[in-house]
């Protein structure tokens, strides 16, 4: 009896706790979006009113057309897509290679990933800047894509190793006996089997490249090549501090990211658990 009571009390507490946590988690997003649709007059007159009286698109118009954010959106898209493509190919090859040829490495992938995290971007960016100047890649989207491999590849390999582990080797052996070479086995047998994992990894790489800020700020200076994150940041330095435009610009950065995140949310965990079970 007392046990049962404790469980229901625990259940109720769980609901309350999670509800509060979710409100806290989601409120900044709500505030960002509603602020983006408010006129500047309303924002300043009623700082605590949540829903706008008149929904207006003027902030989005300012950001997209007056401030020409379309250019930055295009830059961010090109860079993020190129990063996703290159990093996913490199990482899929590597993850498969690790699983099949260096299985011991596969068991310590989490430690390898953490080691790669130890290199602070603020440290790496100085050598990158020096080298890129020497090979004339400063201020180019190509240069930025190359630099983005530094964080995309370790993470994507780590994620993919978890997915490739599930491919039974027998299927590959069978294809080999049928006369397929190693690369054919990889592209025609293995890759289709891990497609869901591959897609999630690619999406995760895309989100991170889309969101990146430090390298984009320090390695690209010409305004025609600036990414979205950096462009949002420059709004703050503008003469007229317009929070409505800043929220509209932030909404343009955050919404694709959230959309893709929710698409892959059930694949986000597991890497660590996988590693611990071995």
């Amino acid at each position: 009896m007392s046990l049962k009571k404790r469980f229901t009390a625990g259940g109720a507490f769980s609901y309350v706790y999670l509800t509060l946590l979710c409100i806290l988690a989601v409120f900044p997003l709500v505030w960002l979006v509603v602020s983006a649709f408010k006129s500047s007059g309303e924002m300043l007159a009623n700082p605590t009113k949540i829903l706008p009286m008149d929904w207006t698109l003027e902030n989005f118009e300012t950001v997209l057309f007056t401030l020409r954010f379309t250019v930055n959106i295009k830059n961010s898209l090109i860079i993020a897509l190129a990063t996703t493509l290159v990093a996913t190919v490199i990482s899929a090859l590597a993850a498969y290679g690790i699983i099949r040829f260096f299985p011991k490495l596969g068991n310590v992938m989490t430690k390898i990933l953490i080691t790669s995290y130890m290199f602070p971007s603020i440290m790496l960016v100085i050598p990158y800047a020096v080298v890129m100047r020497n090979i004339h890649l400063t201020n180019t989207r190509t240069g930025l894509v190359l630099v983005y491999m530094s964080f995309s590849v370790p993470y994507a390999v780590w994620m993919l190793v978890g997915f490739f582990k599930t491919v039974p080797i027998g299927i590959e052996e069978a294809a080999r006996i049928d006369g397929a070479n190693r690369i054919q086995v990889f592209t025609r047998v293995v890759l289709p089997l891990v497609r869901p994992g591959l897609v999630s990894t690619a999406i995760y790489v895309f989100i991170n490249a889309w969101n990146e800020f430090l390298y984009a700020m320090l390695l690209v200076s010409s305004s025609s090549k600036t990414t979205l994150s950096v462009a949002v940041r420059t709004l703050e330095g503008a003469d007229i501090l317009n929070w409505g435009s800043m929220m509209a610009a932030s909404a343009i950065v955050v919404l694709p990211s959230i959309f893709f995140f929710i698409l892959i949310q059930n694949k986000l965990a597991g890497g660590l658990t996988e590693g611990s079970v071995k």
């Binding site: 988690a25 900044p28 997003l29 960002l32 989100i207 889309w210 969101n211 800020f213 994150s229 949002v232 940041r233 932030s250 950065v253 955050v254 990211s257 959230i258 893709f260 995140f261 929710i262």
Partner: peptide
């Protein structure tokens, strides 16, 4: 919040 870019 996890999906939030640092700038946002």
């Amino acid at each position: 919040p996890w999906a939030f870019p640092s700038i946002a």
